[in-house]
């Protein structure tokens, strides 16, 4: 799907790289479907443009070498012209690749949100709206901060979704990703410096279930002792059930794109919902 084919709301979200506001289920579902389709087109374009960029760089190098071979020959001017052409082509290919990369969206994030609302669609209060604040801009310089020399952190609290369930309870899901970028430089035998970048990504999802009125909660949920923490917090005299879960991903060279699956996040909500008193039914 091209940008022009998207509905106005999806166009705005794709360009602003953010989704905000209140949505009814069909509108939100459609928005996410369109953004996922748009991102697939963009990903294919990024791959294609990358291929052309590599070819253009090779052509440019060949033209450059040929130009040198032709020094002192009659065809030197043709060689220079060929090199200039190849150089211009290379610059254009790099620009196109960068442009397509800029338009691509984080697909794992979109798929998580879409999976979440799709499986919970029947639980939603039909009269209530889905409130979402979703930042799709990923790793930007604004989110970057230096921790120590050659190490940077990116803090990305990209997702906040509020769903009102049909039994009056409210489910809140928040996700914050933290990226750590570490660059190590080594001096080789011939004095050449080599640098290696490593990435770590930590995702934290906080799920909350807020009752419509003060309730007596049931037994605490089953939790994974390593990756999960459960607690109760009191807000406006109402006790809220909270479950936190962490995930860790590692990757060399590029920032990890993996993200928690909707399945696991719904599992967190499911366990919190199991704490509701029976009479709520």
């Amino acid at each position: 799907m091209e940008l022009a084919q998207l509905c106005p709301a999806a166009q705005n979200a794709a360009l602003a790289k953010s989704i905000t506001g209140e949505w009814d289920y069909p509108g939100f579902d459609q928005l996410l479907k369109e953004l996922i389709a748009f991102d697939q087109t963009m990903d294919a374009r990024v791959r294609r443009n990358l291929r052309w960029m590599v070819i253009s760089i090779i052509l440019c190098v060949i033209a450059f070498i040929t130009m040198f071979i032709l020094i002192g020959e009659d065809y030197l001017y043709s060689g220079i012209a060929a090199f200039v052409g190849a150089l211009a082509n290379m610059i254009r290919c790099i620009q196109l690749w960068r442009k397509s990369k800029k338009l691509a969206l984080p697909e794992a994030s979109l798929e998580m949100v879409h999976g979440l609302i799709r499986l919970l669609r029947q639980d939603l209060d039909p009269k209530a709206k889905i409130t979402a604040t979703i930042d799709l801009s990923g790793l930007t310089d604004k989110k970057k901060q230096s921790i120590k020399p050659m190490q940077w952190a990116y803090l990305d609290p990209w997702c906040s979704i509020r769903l009102k369930l049909r039994d009056g309870y409210v489910a809140l899901v928040r996700q914050t990703d933290t990226f750590i970028e570490t660059t190590k430089t080594k001096k080789g035998a011939r004095g050449k410096t080599k640098s290696k970048t490593k990435w770590k990504k930590q995702c934290r999802v906080t799920a909350r279930i807020i009752p419509p009125a003060p309730v007596v909660w049931g037994a605490p949920p089953q939790v994974d002792r390593v990756w999960e923490r459960h607690k109760m917090v009191t807000k406006n005299d109402v006790s809220v059930a909270v479950l936190d879960r962490w995930w860790a991903f590692k990757q060399p060279t590029d920032a990890p794109t993996k993200s928690p699956a909707a399945r696991d996040i719904i599992g967190m909500l499911f366990r919190l919902c199991a704490m509701r008193p029976k009479e709520a039914k």
Partner: peptide, 10 residues
């Protein structure tokens, strides 16, 4: 199956 059938989900 995964989270048992305690509490609300009887």
């Amino acid at each position: 199956q995964q989270y048992g059938t305690s509490g609300y989900f009887s």
